[in-house]
């Protein structure tokens, strides 16, 4: 029986959720005919399908929550610790990620500029300012998904030792698709969204990421976009 009734189910539940439309008469006839067994099968299918789908969605890609927002950056202090939430643990397990422990460092990511626009590979960005105190840091850029094998890898990021600084210790990195003077960080791909990662190694702020000031992280300003 379940084989004959199953295809009608999604439509039936949609009708109840939405307005009683043209299918309502068919639905009523179907409900009259269906038995308790049919409804139990429907319940189990809904529970298993929806449960698995939402669990997969929540643990795919990045961490769903647990980040501390600092300016346009998001710090992830707990993803590697024993206090990590179950979602972060599931994400780590699925990706094979080895997160930074609290005593080791702190990961900050940014997917948006200071105006809240998503970072796009066709635009030019100026990442400038200072970083929270750390023995070493690296600032890297990555696109989502696999790297384009045709595109040569010139540079993926800067370390705190490599970066050229102003006299006052501040730095400015230009993330641009074309060659720039100074600290030029090439775009990793021709188009699409990109993400920045700032990793602080051996930093005292890892234990208190909530107290990092907005002025202590680099600003991300869009200076132009290729049309």
């Amino acid at each position: 029986m379940s084989t004959t009734t199953k295809p009608a189910r999604p439509g039936a539940s949609l009708d109840v959720a939405g307005v009683a439309g043209r299918g309502s008469r068919a639905l009523r006839r179907f409900l009259r005919r269906t038995s308790t067994v049919g409804l139990v099968v429907y319940t189990l299918a809904l529970g298993a399908g929806l449960g698995l789908a939402t669990a997969d969605y929540a643990t795919r890609g990045g961490y769903p929550f647990g980040g501390v927002s600092v300016g346009s950056w998001t710090a992830w202090p707990r993803t590697g610790s024993l206090g990590a939430d179950p979602y972060a643990r599931a994400v780590n397990a699925r990706r094979g990620e080895i997160p930074l422990a609290v005593g080791e460092g702190l990961l900050l990511t940014a997917a948006q500029d200071d105006q809240g626009r998503a970072l796009d590979a066709s635009c030019t960005y100026r990442i400038a300012g200072v970083t929270p105190p750390a023995r070493a840091w690296t600032l890297t850029v990555a696109g989502r998904g696999k790297r384009d094998p045709e595109r040569p890898v010139l540079r993926e990021g800067f370390t705190s030792t490599e970066v050229l600084r102003e006299v006052d210790g501040r730095f400015a990195i230009l993330l641009a698709p074309d060659v720039r003077p100074g600290n030029w960080l090439p775009m990793p791909r021709a188009e699409g969204p990109v993400r920045l990662a700032l990793r602080l190694y051996d930093t005292p702020v890892a234990a208190s990421a909530g107290t990092v000031e907005r002025s202590a992280v680099p600003t991300i300003a869009r200076t132009g976009c290729a049309e």
Binding site: L46, L50, T54
Partner: peptide
């Protein structure tokens, strides 16, 4: 009942 079951399945799977 299906939605409640979905919640339980979701939590169990994530854990």
């Amino acid at each position: 009942a299906g939605l409640v079951l979905a919640g339980l399945v979701h939590i169990a799977v994530v854990l």
